[in-house]
Computed example of a mutant assay.
Amino acid sequence: MKIGIDKIGFYAPDLYVDMRELASARGIEPDKFTIGIGQEKMAIAPITQDTVTLAANAALNILDDSDKKKIDLVIFGTESGIDQSKSAAVYVHELLGLDSAARAFEIKQACYGATAGIQMAKGHIALNPDSKVLVLASDIARYGLNSPGESTQGAGAVAIVMSANPRILALEDKSAYFTSDIMDFWRPAYSDTAFVDGKFSNEQYSLFFETVWKQYRSKSGLGFEDFEALCFHVPYTKMGLKALKPVLEVEAKEMDQQRLLENYQKSIQYNKVVGNIYTGSLYLSLLSLLEHKEGLKEGSRIGLFSYGSGAVGEFFTGIVQPEYQNQLKIAQHVDQLSVRKKISIEEYETLFVEELPIDGSTVKLAIENDSAPICLSGISDNKRQYINKQR
C-alpha cells in the first residue's frame, strides 16, 4: 500500500519587508541578504495572526468536505506555540470544522517537528488505511530587531493531507536519521525570541546532512544519480546549497550535479520571498519544486532533508505520482504572494514589538485590517479568541 502526501498547500501573512531595504536600514550591503543568504522578501505576521491562524488558513485552502470527514488525526508541528498546555492542533480542529472523532496534538523538536508528524502519520495510515491525517507546520521565526539572525526571520504555514494511495508523493519506506544533543539554536520558555550560534549551527546542519546521506546511501544502495531533485530545510535559501555542493562534488557525476543544482533553485522560489518558517521550511521547498519544475515526471524520486536544531536530522524520499499537478493550487499560491503589501522598516519595527497582554486583561483586535479568512480577534479571560470569517 502506498502512503504519502495527497494534498499540500501553504499560507503566508499578507505583509512583507523587502530585504534590500532592511539591509540598508541596518547599514549592511544589500547583496549580503539577496545574494549572500539568498533572501528577497520576509513575511511579517500582524498581531492578528499567530501559529494557529496561519496553519488554519493553510489548511482551509486545500480541504474539502470529504477530507474533513476522513481526517481522524491532526498533528501540529511548531516551535512557536501559543499555549504551554493546550495544543494548537485542537484550535485548528475546531476552526476547520473537522469530525470530532479524531486525535489532535502538538509535537516539538525545533524545525524537525512536522517531519516527525509525517512519519507518525505513515504508521497511523498503515493501521487505518481509510483514514486521512492532517499534518500542520506553522511558525513565526523571531530573532529580534538588529540581531544577527534578523535577516532569517519569516512567518507562514504548510498544511499536508496524508493518505493511502496519495495523489502527489508516495513516501518510500527507507529513511536515515541522526540525533545529537547540541546547542546551536534554542528558545527558552521565558523568551519570545530565539538564540542561535550561527556559525556552529551552519556547521552542524552540513554535518547532519552528510551523516544521514551516507547512512541512507548504505541502507538503500541508491546514489545521487537516482534522484531527480533534493529538497532541504532552508532557514535561508543558501543554507541547503552549502551542505549539498561539497557532497555532490565528491560523489556525483557532472550531469547529476547539474540536474540537482538546477532543481535546487526551483525548490527555493517560495522560500526566497517568504523567509524562514521553521517547521514548514522543508515542505515549502517541496511545494516550490512541485509548482516551479516544469516536466517533473511520474516516478521521479525526490529526496528530503529535514533538520531540527538541538538536533535531529532525517533524510527520506518520495516518488512523484501520476497527475500530481491536478492536486496543486499554483494560481492560488501565486496570487496570494502577489497581492501582499510591502511595509516600511518603521512599520515592521512597530509590528515586531506589538504584544498581546500577559496580565489577563481583555483586548479586541482590528481583524478588519487582516485579509486572512481566519484571524485572532482578541483575548478575554486569558483565552485567545479566534474567528473564521467564512462561517
Score class of each variant (00 low, 15 high):
Lys2Met: 10
Asp14Leu: 03
Asp31Asn: 02
Phe33Arg: 03
Thr34Glu: 09
Ile35Met: 05
Ile35His: 01
Ile37Phe: 01
Ala43Asn: 13
Thr51Met: 08
Ala59Gln: 12
Ile62Pro: 11
Lys69Gln: 04
Lys69Phe: 00
Ile71Asp: 00
Ile82Trp: 01
Ser85Cys: 08
Ser87Thr: 04
His93Ser: 06
Ala110Tyr: 00
Ala110Phe: 00
Cys111Lys: 06
Tyr112Ser: 08
Ala114Arg: 07
Thr115Pro: 04
Gly123Asp: 02
Gly123Met: 02
Ile125Lys: 09
Asp130Tyr: 02
Ala137Arg: 05
Ala137Asp: 09
Gly144Cys: 10
Asn146His: 01
Asn146Ile: 00
Gly149Ala: 13
Gly154Ile: 02
Ala157Asp: 14
Ala159Val: 03
Ala164Pro: 01
Ser180Lys: 14
Asp192Leu: 11
Asp192Ser: 11
Asp192Arg: 10
Ala194Met: 12
Asn202Gly: 15
Ser218Val: 08
Gly223Lys: 05
Asp226Lys: 07
Cys231Ser: 13
Phe232Met: 15
Lys238Glu: 10
Met239Ser: 13
Leu241Phe: 11
Lys242Glu: 15
Lys242Gly: 13
Ala252Val: 07
Gln258Phe: 02
Arg259Lys: 13
Leu261Glu: 10
Tyr264Glu: 12
Ile268Thr: 06
Tyr278His: 05
Thr279Asn: 15
Thr279Tyr: 06
Gly280Lys: 08
Ser281Ala: 15
Leu282Asn: 10
Ser288Trp: 05
Ser306Ile: 06
Gly313Tyr: 06
Phe316Tyr: 14
Ile319Asn: 15
Pro322Lys: 12
Ile330Gly: 03
Asp335Glu: 15
Ser338Lys: 14
Val339Gly: 13
Glu349Cys: 10
Leu351Arg: 14
Phe352Asp: 14
Pro357Glu: 01
Gly360Met: 03
Val363Pro: 04
Asp370Trp: 02
Ser371Gly: 08
Ile374Lys: 06
Cys375Lys: 10
Ser377Pro: 10
Lys383Met: 03
Asn388Tyr: 13
Gln390Pro: 11
Arg391Trp: 15
